[in-house]
Design a protein around this nucleic acid. Sequence first.
DNA 1: GCGCGGCCTTGACCTGCGTCAATCGCACGC
DNA 2: GCGTGCGATTGACGCAGGTCAAGGCCGCGC
Lengths: 255, 255
Amino acid sequence: MQQRHSPFDIGRIAGLSPAQERERGEAGSPCGACSVRHLTFCAPLGEEEFDHVTRIVQNVELHPGDPLFDEGEEATHLYSVTAGAVKVYKLLPDGRRQIIGFLFAGDFLGLAADESYAYSAEAVTHASLCRFPRRKLEALLERFPRMERRLLGMASHELAVAQEQMLLLGRKTAREKIASFLLTLGQRSAYRGQAANPVSVPMSRNDIGDYLGLTTETVSRTFTQLRQSGLIALLPAGRVELLEIDALRSIAEGS
Amino acid sequence: MQQRHSPFDIGRIAGLSPAQERERGEAGSPCGACSVRHLTFCAPLGEEEFDHVTRIVQNVELHPGDPLFDEGEEATHLYSVTAGAVKVYKLLPDGRRQIIGFLFAGDFLGLAADESYAYSAEAVTHASLCRFPRRKLEALLERFPRMERRLLGMASHELAVAQEQMLLLGRKTAREKIASFLLTLGQRSAYRGQAANPVSVPMSRNDIGDYLGLTTETVSRTFTQLRQSGLIALLPAGRVELLEIDALRSIAEGS
DNA sequence: GCGCGGCCTTGACCTGCGTCAATCGCACGC
DNA sequence: GCGTGCGATTGACGCAGGTCAAGGCCGCGC
């Protein structure tokens, strides 16, 4: 239990050593040069496993707003984000939208509970992803149980994140939601080795609203209110400075 | 891909054949006599695997309101519900509560993203569970990759359910939430081979509220309103008859 | 430099749901 | 049968956040 990682413990698997410097891997494809491997699904793979993965992976480049796949579509591929930001969402027939998550370098998507995707995915910024044909990846899982263990760990982690988000959606106020959102974005940036304090907030107010169960206007007003209270500063290029992290933390946890 | 189940496809694995009749397995322990095995984690195990599981499993009986474990506690066990209902929830420091899910026969809990539970669990009704020491189960997973595959399938399924719940919490109205809730409870009953139409609703209005992001009063008012519209009937013993399933379905999906 | 379009902000107003409080219903113990 | 207590229901009222609408800001193309 020291050397071996628990399959129920993605935190320890993935959190070993958030690196300092990285640029997104070049569009080409060679996994050998992957600069974000330590963050991804591929991190714990051995030589042989990694070799096999390298052979089935494809590269995908998206521009802001480009769709990756739609809810209900046949789930033919799984993806790992290597650069940029992607959003994943579900729609109601009348157009109401719930964003299920924002994904950054190292995040995995496409795990489907049945044959089709349960959500749609679309680029927020310019984004690069590795694409794994599902059939071929399954064949590898068959051969390399360690990969299955890794996926189980990632799924358990996703589940914990989803549960935390349910708490936010069901029980937090707008102010608490925004504070939680900014802190979480910061933590995730730090985990990837990027600046955690002036946090980069690449998504629109509308996207933030659809993620937190609020409207654009309420998101905007709440940002303004936090700014006026001296807790944050709104910088150019969608960056937000967290001026009073402790205060934000106590707001996020419910005053 | 015909004989072999996809690891990303819990739906097919778990959904093979919801049986008709079952009573909860007797408190004793012998897995051999388990009447809900076809619903559980154990369903797809082979002889040898099942034997090993049998040897590490313990039985737990809970009365309504009994706690099973608390958020933050060391995650020493995993559980499979064999009878009754269990609720799983998270708290904010000021006491606000979000129920993450209600679990019934066949459901699994305790998968933790790190060494401690991310939520608390407590019995809703009298409940029976199988308890697996985590260390020992991990050792089995090591030996039997098929079990890991099964867990991955279950986790993927949980993830899809959680995402659907985020859509509900973030974007649905009280009326839509209650309609969705009743329909989902019905489907899950049917899946276990129990009555789907007069649905059994064993949890309190308060629990329902904490699950749907509403207050007790709003839950109560919404039930009354659905009853007055002739869509449901409130029967004794916490049972609800769904009188107009199609109408309820269209409400649940957003009118 | 100028106009255009998309996003953000702000204001005024509205409403769905929360809050507070009273009452009801029913299971249970004696 | 009768009291007791907890959960459910109902009502009156308030407010957080939604809706509708008007600018403001800014990057981009020509």
